[in-house]
Design a protein around this nucleic acid. Structure first.
Lengths: 344, 344
DNA sequence: AAATTTACCGCAACTTGTTGCACAAACGGT
DNA sequence: ACCGTTTGTGCAACAAGTTGCGGTAAATTT
């Protein structure tokens, strides 16, 4: 688009000097006389000269842009991450280009390619539910593109990642339910090929094991998409068992909310008949009736941290420093106990 | 960043022809012989040649990038808008750069400038709560930057905008409460200098007037930020009136949820004692207890529509067509009646 | 056979800004 | 008066790709 912005040549022409002199004057190069610098800076100010970042990008092969690939934007946890990324990127002078895979592998591949072709300086990525092979990612990594994974990571040595301690978070949540006297604790499991789902299931098992409770396969219900509807259906099945569960630990809050609906509709009371703990601490968990206990994940910090690591790597790379060692940041969860899990 | 991507020159060197011939061959220019085209295309394929978009942008002064300025990313309604924008932009081959003003005027100005300097082809914008003068926006508009406003618009003739029919939505919600037999309907008013807040207040007044009910100043409580906390506090004040309201129409869902908390804590029943309708139809409104009636705003469609209008303007502009007339799109709301407002 | 047309390709300029190198003028020292 | 140094500036190449114009050789027309 032509916004007829003033260029360095306009200034040069007006002052009767060469573009290179103007360029140097603007950068306070010692070769240029103070008088020329003054003239150039004054005119630049007057004409509101702004350097053309596209030309700078072409010459320096640096776009000051970060690409973000995320499964869904409309998702409380992910949107807080984006917010954290944006704030850090803004402060460091980077733009962020957002793409959403919509949980589709094909779209993820396409986004990856598009961002690479946009010559972003680095990428932040959380993989889709469908992603089972990682060739497309390896391909980009092998070209030297710095990528920091967050939450839904590609778990390979050599990649930087920011994750939440899902296992410990799940364990704490389950132990909390055990402390409340629950004996038959069900688990609503998240998308099975995601690392985080496995970790949460594992934390749940560890807690049961530590407390000497049996692990009962029939009490684990899969919610492959993690939606409210799935949570509700899964819970209805659990409620039809001969011996009902007395607590549910859900892999995410929407599923937990679905569980609450199912329990209410079955005429049971929360937490008296069935206690519930969710995962993610969605904005509105506290507004449920009863307020939902949940494992809080620091999404904003996760976004900030991922952006900081990426920018650090980018700046090292552009200074031709040696390849920085991959960084792994493990963030702590925090169990927020509300009424949905407290048996008096 | 140097990802040593193959260039047109690499192909030219390898085939012993000039870069211009390669360029033309790749674009299927009639001047080039079929044989040369075949050779070039095969080698380009083999080397996985991808044109450098930065060089293309510099030459064509077009970046195929859209800038988005939004008050907050972590907000259900706004995130659905972003999602709609992203989907349309992706299909049309545009990248989107997201910035959030965090409801600050200073940040909004800074974002606007940064996006302009990034040479985006156009902008989509929803103004911050603080924005009262529009000089910074006029300044950019006057340079010929296409901008489409959405939801929180800069209401000036000559600008394109996508809005929801807030007045009609508010009126329908209020009329619905009146139909339920409510006589003293309170209103939780949103940030006062936003156009949408005024429209919703106006719709509320029109409904009262049509039904022959008096407009009572004391029943309108201001929620300048529209948060749950404010909604709760405002409702507590309303409940301390000599004659309590028998219904509340809130300017947004978080405030409505705050109102629900206050009502519950006062030992009153929803909807029996006080009926409630919110605005926005947040994802979790249906999960409230009782489920919250709300005016649904089509956020995804709004994002799509805004992006479509903007892209259309951008493409016309780049074809040097005459300045397109500003477009205004008014989207309809839909009242979702749930239990919180139905008196049996 | 000469003139004209056609097919095909390359040079060079252009987008904007940066930078190595060359060059001119002014100055100081002998 | 001559040489060497310093100071200040400009030329030209470069980043990657596009495109107007010109040129050559072969094909076609007269």
């Amino acid at each position: 688009m032509n916004f007829n912005q003033v260029t360095i040549k306009d200034i040069a022409r007006e002052l009767g000097i060469s573009p290179s002199t103007v360029s140097r004057a603007l950068k306070d190069h010692p070769d240029i006389s103070p008088e020329t610098k003054r003239l150039v800076n004054e005119l630049a100010e007057k004409l509101n000269y702004q350097p053309n970042v596209v030309a700078l990008s072409l010459r320096s092969s640096k776009t000051n842009t970060i690409g973000v690939i995320i499964p869904e934007i409309v998702h409380f946890f992910f949107s807080t991450i984006i917010s954290g990324i944006e704030d850090v990127a803004y402060s460091a002078g980077y733009n962020i280009i957002i793409t959403q895979s919509n949980e589709s592998l094909a779209r993820e591949k396409s986004d990856l390619k598009a961002l690479f072709n946009s010559r972003v300086d680095g990428m932040l990525m959380s993989i889709s539910r469908e992603t089972v092979d990682f060739e497309h990612i390896e391909n980009i990594l092998s070209k030297g593109m710095p990528i920091v994974f967050f939450d839904r990571i590609y778990d390979t040595p050599g990649s930087s990642k920011v994750i939440v301690d899902d296992k410990v978070g799940a364990k704490e949540a389950t132990l909390h339910l055990i402390e409340q006297g629950c004996k038959r604790i069900a688990h609503l499991e998240g998308p099975p090929n995601l690392h985080i789902s496995k970790q949460r299931l594992e934390g749940y098992r560890e807690a049961l094991s530590e407390a000497g409770l049996p692990f009962d396969e029939s009490l684990v219900a899969l919610c492959p998409k993690g939606t409210t509807e799935e949570g509700k259906l899964a819970t209805e099945k659990l409620l039809s068992l001969k011996t009902k569960p007395d607590a549910i630990f859900a892999s995410n809050d929407p599923a937990a909310m679905g569980a609450m609906q199912a329990i209410r509709q079955a005429g049971l009371k929360i937490p008296k008949d069935i206690a519930i703990v969710g995962f993610s601490n969605w904005q509105l968990s506290s507004l449920m009736e009863p307020p939902l206990s949940s494992v809080d994940q620091p999404g904003y910090e996760m976004g900030q941290e991922a952006a900081r690591i990426l920018i650090r790597h980018i700046e090292l790379k552009s200074k031709k420093k040696p390849e920085p060692a991959p960084e792994v940041k493990l963030l702590k969860t925090r169990l927020i106990v509300r009424e949905s899990s407290v048996k008096k």
